[in-house]
Simulated scan of single mutants.
Amino acid sequence: MKQAVQEQIAAALEQLFGAVTKLQAAYPGKPFTLDGRLVGDIGEVVASLHYRLTLNEGLTKRHDAIADDGRNVQIKTTFSKNLTFPVGHVPDYYLGIKLSRDGTFEEIYNGPGQLIKDELKRRAPTTTNGLHGNLMSQLKRINLTVPDEQRIPRR
């Protein structure tokens, strides 16, 4: 039994690393590492394909992309029901998306980071790494109030 489980893990890891190699070939500017960055890197690339923005090269602090009009954008991505927002700084613009297994996505929030910060000002961080978490319903609600001219436009 133990050998069979180890073989299944080895086969699954081989598939994962094969997928990473394909992702790296498709978009060489992102590392697509399996150490917790994979979902974020995929989300950034998906966002760059659907919104008028250019991804920053490599890893950058606080912002992941620049919109065509010069606005700095932080992109957060999830496959589940959790998006986070930083406690220590306010991103100029925040784009939160929920990915589906088929590569489609739902826009959860697209607008100024300050609107989120204002909404969370009395709330303590909900994670141990200085992030507000479990924001999906709040972000959707705040997103309804964002004027179109303050959104990152789609391509």
Rank of each mutant, 00 (worst) to 15 (best):
E106V: 14
T21L: 11
I42K: 00
E107K: 07
P31N: 13
A67H: 05
L95F: 13
D68Y: 09
I97Q: 10
L53Q: 05
V73C: 02
G103H: 01
T77R: 01
G36N: 08
L95A: 12
S137G: 06
R101C: 09
P31D: 14
H63K: 02
E119M: 08
F79K: 04
G103Y: 01
P86L: 06
T77I: 07
F105V: 10
I42P: 00
Q74C: 04
R122N: 12
G133E: 12
L115Q: 12
L135C: 13
V45N: 02
R122T: 04
T60W: 08
D118L: 09
S137E: 11
Y94T: 08
P31M: 04
H63I: 06
K98I: 05
F79D: 03
I66K: 11
A65T: 04
D69Y: 12
K98G: 09
L83E: 07
L53V: 06
Y94M: 03
V46F: 03
G40K: 01
I97S: 12
N82S: 14
A25M: 11
Y51F: 15
H132M: 03
D35Y: 11
V73Q: 09
V87G: 01
K22T: 12
F85E: 03
T78F: 09
V73G: 05
P112Y: 07
F105P: 04
A47H: 05
G58Y: 09
Y93S: 15
A124Q: 15
V73R: 02
L99M: 06
L23Y: 14
L115K: 11
S137P: 06
E107V: 15
R123I: 01
H50S: 13
T78C: 09
